[in-house]
Amino acid sequence: MRSVTLRTTYFITQIRSCSSNSDTVPTQQQPAAHKTPKGLKEKKKKENVIKTRRQLCQPVLDSFDEQYGRELANLWPSARSVLLDPDSWQYGVMLNRFAALSDIINILQSKGFSSFLPQTHAPFLPNNSSSAIPLPRQHGGCFLHPKPVHLPSQAHWPGVLKQYYLLNAASLLPVLALQLRDGEKVLDLCSAPGGKALAIMQTANPALLCCNESDPHRKEWLAQTLESFLPQSLRNRVILSNQDGRVFGQSPAGTYDKVLVDAPCSNDRSWLYSSNPQQGAQRLKDRATLPSLQAQLLRSALGAVRPGGAVVYSTCTLSTYENAEVVGAVLDSCPEAELEDLWEELATPFSAHFTFIHPSQHRHHQRRRCGLLVVPTPGRTWGPMYLCRIRRRG
């Protein structure tokens, strides 16, 4: 018990010591196994700063300029300026309702953080578990700062749950779009690294959450993330799978109430900083195959969800070819699939935080209004994030 208390105190001290002028961009890396000595910690901090200032991959930027300049027109210059300035990127702090939160909320609020969820969208609340600190209803489980204030990532301590997860707050929108209810069976089809799976468990108490990841190495990362945030008592309700996501719709059909397809995509932020021009060029070459894979995953999800259930499709790219075009093609081939408009449900209440556009507002784009697109802009650097919800007719 004394060990747990000391580690909690250490985490809180780290938060208190963070500065709003920090130039360190945190990343949710695979956690270390042990506490880092002070000298080594400073060295690693400097190395992380260097890593965040890696060289821009010019072939990827040239490709984005050509495509997004055409698709987004006058929105692309502002989005481009954000993507080229990692120091301006904002990070949300998602609290873990299963951990001992102590006075973290007060510390965050004293630093200018506030909950971004309106009361009508405040599902990120603790249950009656004795391991959770009850939060007042006006406090959601994710806190944002209007400036790029960077909290330190928490290290992994065996047997001790992490208190918060750093994330792009736009990635919570697909989870909110699922409209989760307690007791439902949920499938996270492409789950690694696990941020959305954690958000699902902060949102509701599903009877089953299947976290699937086809890549073995990414599955290991996913397993470690879940271990760091979820108590042992949930292990019988949160299961890991290592299947090809395209097979879920085959047998047994209609197993799940809700399915999230956070599909493999271009990942605009990371691709711009590919390790070298050769890697960037290879990624651009492989990009042409992504829409076919994404469509197959979405069709599989529609087969796995029960009649009347919902599928949410999301990506972290601005690309029309991987977003609205994929959804439109699947809708054309699946008569049982019905697109639902998310504008009033999500864009209106969250417009103060995110810059939303309908993908159909893309220049030269004639597709139906397929979902929402969050475009990063100065001062609101969240995104890119595309999402849509499809209902399977009964």
Rank of each mutant, 00 (worst) to 15 (best):
M1L: 10
R7N: 10
T9L: 12
I12H: 08
Q14Y: 04
S17A: 15
N21F: 05
A32R: 14
G39E: 03
T52W: 09
Q58D: 09
D65F: 12
E66M: 06
Y68R: 09
Y68W: 09
R70Y: 03
A73I: 04
P77Q: 15
L84V: 11
L84G: 10
D87Y: 08
F98G: 00
S102E: 14
D103F: 07
Q109T: 12
S114E: 15
S115F: 10
Q119K: 11
Q119G: 11
A122E: 02
Q138M: 08
L151F: 00
V160P: 08
Y165I: 10
L167C: 06
A170T: 01
S171E: 10
V175F: 03
D188K: 02
C190K: 09
K196Q: 07
A204Y: 00
L208T: 07
L209D: 11
W221L: 11
E227T: 09
S228Y: 02
S228I: 01
D244T: 11
R246D: 07
V247M: 03
G249P: 06
P252I: 14
A253G: 08
D262R: 04
N267F: 05
N276D: 15
Q282D: 09
K285A: 09
R287N: 09
T289P: 01
L290M: 10
A301Y: 04
G303W: 00
A304T: 02
A324T: 05
A324V: 02
A337S: 08
E338S: 09
E338G: 07
E345G: 03
E345C: 04
P359D: 03
P376Q: 15
G383L: 08
L387P: 00
L387H: 04
